[in-house]
């Protein structure tokens, strides 16, 4: 008998009543699928938690499983990935606050289009975390470094409050590169959004295409038509005639976030891209392949956004070392 089955046996009446009540409240609750979920995903987690926490962990996992089932999320790939690949790896921390850890990590996975990278990074960092709070804080930093650029500012604040070894490890997860010697130095280096862990310090010397954002709505992107960009107040916005999005980009990734329907008024970019694709900006120049004949340009202090007449993407140029 597995620890899960033993725990279910100990609370048999209660668990049966919960299931019966949930089934009465929602037609989506279905016995066979639920039992399969318990065997396939919950049993390994309960087997991994310390024996003394098996009952509390089972209770939280059981309740949340019923919640997920009533919301038709029990088989969601992101939820399955977290329960299968991450929760057994964080079992010791899960045992300290079962409901909070399981619900938070499941909610987080649903925030990603593809949570695989974040889940792998979380599994890597978990052994360095002493408490559920540290795990969840590290998870926020990893969400940022896995591409959620719109959370950059608040994630840096979380990074600053982590214990130094954990903070350094969180930024280095999946990047075996040398980092600045202290957390203060690391935070200073991260002031430049285009600084990549392991990159040398020094003045930028050239312009380069550092990333892109957006894409055609039919392929999962935000834009129904080739967008145009504007910049105001140190922020970039892209609009396609129907909707406006704020653009967030740094060395870890780029995202577009809905920002009403009409673009804000923006100032013209102090930059130029000629017909041959030569880019002139911030006193630097250089040819960036593919950017000839742009439809719009917009720039902040550190990022030049370029759109093309026949592309649904926004191309991002920055000064690099």
């Amino acid at each position: 008998m597995t620890p899960l089955h033993a725990a279910l046996e100990r609370g048999r009446d209660r668990y049966n009543a919960k299931f019966a009540q949930a089934r009465r409240a929602s037609r989506k609750v279905e016995g066979a699928a639920f039992a399969e979920h318990l065997d396939a995903l919950v049993a390994p987690i309960v087997a991994a938690v310390p024996a003394e926490a098996a009952d509390a962990s089972t209770e939280a996992l059981y309740d949340l499983s019923l919640d997920l089932m009533t919301r038709s999320l029990l088989g969601h790939p992101a939820v399955v990935a977290v329960w299968r690949d991450l929760l057994p790896e964080v079992a010791a921390l899960l045992a300290q606050a079962p409901r909070r850890v399981v619900a938070s990590l499941s909610n987080a996975a649903l925030a990603f289009d593809d949570p695989a990278r974040w889940i792998a990074a979380m599994a890597d960092i978990a052994p360095r975390c002493a408490t559920p709070d540290e795990l969840l804080d590290a998870g926020m930093v990893l969400a940022w470094t896995c591409g959620m650029a719109h959370w950059r500012e608040s994630a840096r604040a979380v990074l600053a409050r982590l214990p130094e070894p954990l903070a350094m490890a969180a930024v280095a997860v999946g990047r075996p590169v040398p980092l600045p010697p202290t957390l203060a130095d690391l935070l200073a280096a991260l002031d430049d959004p285009w600084w990549r862990p392991g990159a040398p310090a020094g003045k930028p010397t050239s312009l380069a295409l550092v990333g892109s954002a957006g894409g055609f709505r039919g392929f999962g992107g935000p834009f129904g038509a080739p967008p145009r960009v504007v910049a105001t107040g140190g922020r970039l916005f892209a609009h396609d005639g129907e909707a406006c999005f704020s653009l967030h980009a740094d060395a870890f990734g780029a995202t577009c976030q809905r920002h009403g329907t009409a673009p804000p008024a923006g100032a013209p970019a102090q930059a130029m891209v000629d017909a041959a694709g030569f880019v002139f900006w911030r006193g630097l120049g250089g040819r960036v392949v593919g950017l000839a004949g742009p439809s719009s340009l917009a720039a902040t202090d550190d990022t030049l956004a370029v759109t093309l007449p026949h592309s649904h993407k926004v191309f991002l140029v920055a000064a690099t070392r």
């Binding site: 997920l68 619900a103 499941s106 925030a111 998870g139 959370w151 608040s154 976030q257």
Partner: peptide, 19 residues
């Protein structure tokens, strides 16, 4: 403003007053 704490807000309730 964008807040990374939104990462953990979703359909599942974390429970507990402190959360």
């Amino acid at each position: 403003p964008f807040d990374v704490a939104d990462l953990y807000r979703g359909p599942l309730d974390e429970g507990g007053v402190e959360s």
